[in-house]
Measured scan of single mutants.
Amino acid sequence: HSLRVHINGKDFEVHNADEHVIRALEELIRRGADADELKEFLERWKG
């Protein structure tokens, strides 16, 4: 899957995101994670 996440006016393109990554991202958003947390998660995932 390809996923586009809009954080703090920046678009993050997440390519080849598997279900696990997408679910983790949705969980963060549901918990009310702020932009920094989401960005950190995506950067860690992209490795």
Rank of each mutant, 00 (worst) to 15 (best):
D36Q: 09
I7P: 00
I7Y: 06
A35W: 13
D34C: 04
R4K: 15
S2L: 13
I22K: 05
R23Y: 12
K39Y: 15
G9Y: 01
N8M: 06
A35Y: 15
R4C: 14
K10W: 05
H20L: 12
E40Q: 11
L25K: 00
L38G: 00
G32D: 04
F12Q: 01
E27G: 09
L42W: 13
I22S: 02
K46Q: 12
V14L: 09
D18R: 04
H15Y: 10
L25V: 07
L3F: 15
V21A: 07
R23H: 10
E19K: 11
E27V: 12
E43P: 01
D18A: 11
L38S: 00
I22F: 08
A33D: 02
G9R: 01
L42Y: 15
A35N: 06
D34R: 06
F12A: 00
R4Y: 09
G47T: 09
I29T: 03
L3H: 09
H6V: 12
E43W: 13
W45L: 06
K39R: 13
H6R: 14
E43A: 15
A17Y: 04
L28P: 00
H20P: 07
G9Q: 01
W45I: 07
E37F: 08
H20I: 10
H20W: 14
E40Y: 11
I7W: 04
G32I: 03
W45Y: 12
H15E: 08
L25G: 00
L3Y: 13
G47Q: 13
N16T: 09
E40N: 11
E13D: 05
S2T: 15
W45V: 04
A35S: 10
K46C: 04
R23A: 07
D34N: 11
I22T: 04
R23G: 06
A17T: 08
H15D: 06
K46E: 09
H6C: 04
L25F: 10
R30P: 00
I7R: 01
V14F: 11
H6I: 11
A33I: 05
R30V: 08
K39L: 15
E26M: 15
R31T: 08
H1V: 14
D11N: 09
G32M: 05
V5S: 01
D18T: 11
D34W: 05
L42P: 00
E27P: 01
E37L: 06
D18K: 05
D11A: 11
D36M: 07
A35G: 07
A35E: 11
G47F: 15
E27F: 13
L38N: 00
A33C: 06
W45N: 04
H6Y: 06
I22A: 03
F12T: 01
L38A: 03
N16E: 05
K10F: 05
V14A: 02
R44I: 08
W45D: 03
H1S: 15
H15V: 11
I7H: 02
